[in-house]
Write a protein that binds this DNA or RNA. Structure first.
Length: 583
RNA sequence: GGCCCGGUAGCGCAGUUGGUUAGCGCGUCGCCCUGUCACGGCGAAGGUCGCGGGUUCAAGUCCCGUCCGGGUCGCCA
């Protein structure tokens, strides 16, 4: 090592020691005869005192330097209690410029509070990551993955890698495709997840598999979505749902304990999918605040108001919402329309308990009289209604609930509300009247639906579970189908012929001819978990080199066009062979 | 793919009903400064106003198109 100590590790105990530090010029305070340089490295920073004007005057921000000198206690009254190394300083004896830095595109360590915009930060991500916040986010993520590996190792899991160049998996997202030079016209797909491989590993008798795996999906972006992202992927044999939930809770408990020093109480509460939809209008309820949905279909069973003559009528209360300005109430209508609804009916309960608002005059005297009590609204509140199909209306109210929480600041800081959402439907209707698997087609039915799921797909429940944190789905999994007969009936329900199934993932079905064990697993989104634990808004903050919303990387400039020669060599334009699997 | 917001000096921003030479802070560069810690003082440089077209005597400002970034709905486990 060309240094003896970390710049952030020096304390009063080091006083008198001669040390050599190496790092970057963070801030400099040049007084002419004496200058102070904050020298920063990965451990923190220390103040360097330089008495030679020529040495100090030449230094610039972010030059890489090494300094040898004696650690001394700062003169009386000059200690800085706000920083760990504030008691001491290093009197520079010898300073070596290891490398110089060009003028910076944005402030790194100047003490400026202003932030550069994200695109500039990403273009110079190597400078961005010298900054305290971004660096801390990556350090936190490293601690997360390290902790996970320790838990998995302790539980006897095998870390097994699976291919990145593979064939399309049937999970529904668009694949990233890779041309194959040796077989012009044929393409690899990057895996959307290691789903099929981990099931093959169960057939192979590995019994306990995990991987911190990169996954690829060619879909549009969000703040919490990237085209490549990372999952903790887990699969186990000879287990039941309870085993997966217990293991997952152990991982989460250890993570929060080790990384944040927070105790999570287990078992984590559970809620069925239907209950989540009924009470929160979401398959990933945010339990950090109340104001649950209230169904009022019965209450308005005999209403004269046409809008409320619907299969489902529900309500959600906005505390203090009665004083919402008209313009904002109109804004809610726009908000609802943007979600594909016709609008969002509302009534206002004024301070005296009087019911007002455009809908008020459409409902009867008695309906007006009891509605506040029915939905738990107080004077001064607003009540929003959705009426229509149950599922759609609940989702609209669920979204409204979240919007209300945001507007009214109902979400407390520093709360970690975990929840298992279990018993999701196995199938959902497709646009053309058929059925499709909600998870993926290898998800088993709950045992009590094993005999009936194909006769009554609408009501069949899947042996699946999602782990939710503060309204974010951070992972999910299922107990898989290991019986050929049940698998075939699932394919029948979703309208997949034997030939199609065979050509898409015949290799898995073949494997299942050879004594597949009962198995199941889960996948946890590492990016999202890291972002939540780091307290940052976007998963881009916990990814070293993330991409922008159009899939670009401002740093490398990827993606780029390819040359005609590359194009030819890759075989992209070769007339395609007759692909056996057409997705 | 739809909708919303944004793009003005290296960075963060202001720029009025269209009107003279487009401003402010930070940074940069030069000079000065022996106890600062967002050090301070004096001075200077730095701009295709994202790009293209249009309206106008006149466009950073209005209109159309387009590119880029962010968000959101669709999509996506």
């Amino acid at each position: 090592m060309i240094r003896t100590h970390g710049a952030g590790q020096l304390t009063a105990h080091n006083a008198g020691d001669t040390v050599t530090l190496a790092g970057w010029v963070a801030r400099r305070r040049d007084h002419g005869g004496v200058a102070f340089i904050d020298l920063r490295d990965a451990t923190g920073w220390s103040q360097i005192v330089i008495h030679d004007e020529n040495v100090a005057g030449a230094l610039r921000a972010e030059w890489c330097i090494s300094v040898t000198g004696k650690v001394s206690l700062r003169p009386d009254g000059n200690a800085n209690e706000n920083v760990p190394t504030g008691a001491i300083e290093v009197i520079c004896d010898q300073l070596t410029v290891l490398s110089e830095a060009a003028p910076l595109p944005f402030p790194i360590d100047s003490g400026e509070r202003v932030d550069a915009n994200e695109e500039v930060r990403l273009k110079y991500r190597y400078l961005d990551l010298r900054r305290e916040g971004p660096a801390a986010a990556l350090r936190l993520r490293s601690k997360i993955t390290t902790t996970i590996r320790a838990v998995m190792e302790g539980e006897g899991f095998l870390d097994i890698e699976t291919p990145y160049l593979t064939r399309s998996t049937p999970e529904g997202a668009r694949d990233f495709l890779v041309p194959v030079r040796l077989q012009p016209g044929s393409w690899y797909a990057l895996p959307q997840s290691p789903q099929l491989f981990k099931q093959l590993l169960m057939v192979a008798g590995m019994e306990k598999y995990y991987q911190i795996a990169r996954c690829f999906r060619d879909e549009d972006f969000r703040a919490d979505r990237q085209p490549e992202f990372t999952q903790l992927d887990v699969e186990m044999s000879f287990i039941d749902q309870e085993d997966i939930l217990t293991l997952t809770e152990k991982i989460l408990q250890k993570l929060w304990k080790e990384v944040l020093g927070i105790e999570i109480s287990t078992p984590i509460p559970r809620m069925t999918f239907l209950e989540a939809m009924r009470r929160f209008g979401s398959d990933k309820p945010d339990l950090r605040f109340e104001y649950e949905l209230v169904e009022v279909t019965e209450y308005f069973a005999n209403t004269e108001f046409r809008v409320f003559k619907a299969p489902y009528v529900g309500a959600v209360v906005m505390p203090g919402g009665a004083s919402t300005p008209r313009r904002e109430l109109d804004g809610w209508q726009e908000w609802a329309k943007a979600r594909g609804a016709k609008g969002l009916a509302y009534i206002l309960i004024d301070a005296t308990g009087e019911v007002t608002g455009p809908v008020a005059k459409n409902i009867s005297e008695s309906e007006r009289a009891g509605i506040a009590a029915k939905v738990g609204a107080n004077p001064g509140d607003a009540i929003f209604f959705a009426a229509g199909e149950r599922d759609e209306s609940q989702k609209l109210l669920g979204a409204a609930r979240l919007e209300i929480a945001k507007k009214c600041n109902l979400i407390p800081d520093h709360m970690w509300e975990f929840l298992w959402v279990v018993d999701a439907p196995m199938f959902e209707p497709t646009d053309n009247g058929g059925w499709t698997a909600v998870h993926h087609p290898f998800t088993g039915p709950k045992p009590e639906f094993a005999a009936t799921f194909d006769k009554d797909p609408a009501n069949a429940l899947a042996y699946a579970y999602d782990i939710v944190l503060n309204g974010n789905e951070i992972g999910g999994g299922s107990i898989r189908i290991h019986q050929r007969e049940i698998q075939q009936r699932v394919f029948d329900v979703i309208g997949l012929t034997r030939e199609e199934a065979q050509s898409k993932f015949g290799f898995l079905l073949d494997a299942f001819n050879y004594g597949p064990p009962p198995h199941g697993g889960i996948a946890i989104g590492i990016d999202r978990v890291s972002a939540l634990m780091a307290g940052v808004e976007s998963i881009r903050e916990v990814i070293a080199f993330p991409k922008t919303a159009s899939g670009g990387d401002p740093l490398t400039g990827a993606p780029t066009p390819i040359t005609p020669a590359q194009r030819k060599e890759a075989g992209i334009d070769k007339s395609e062979k007759l692909e056996k699997s057409e997705k």
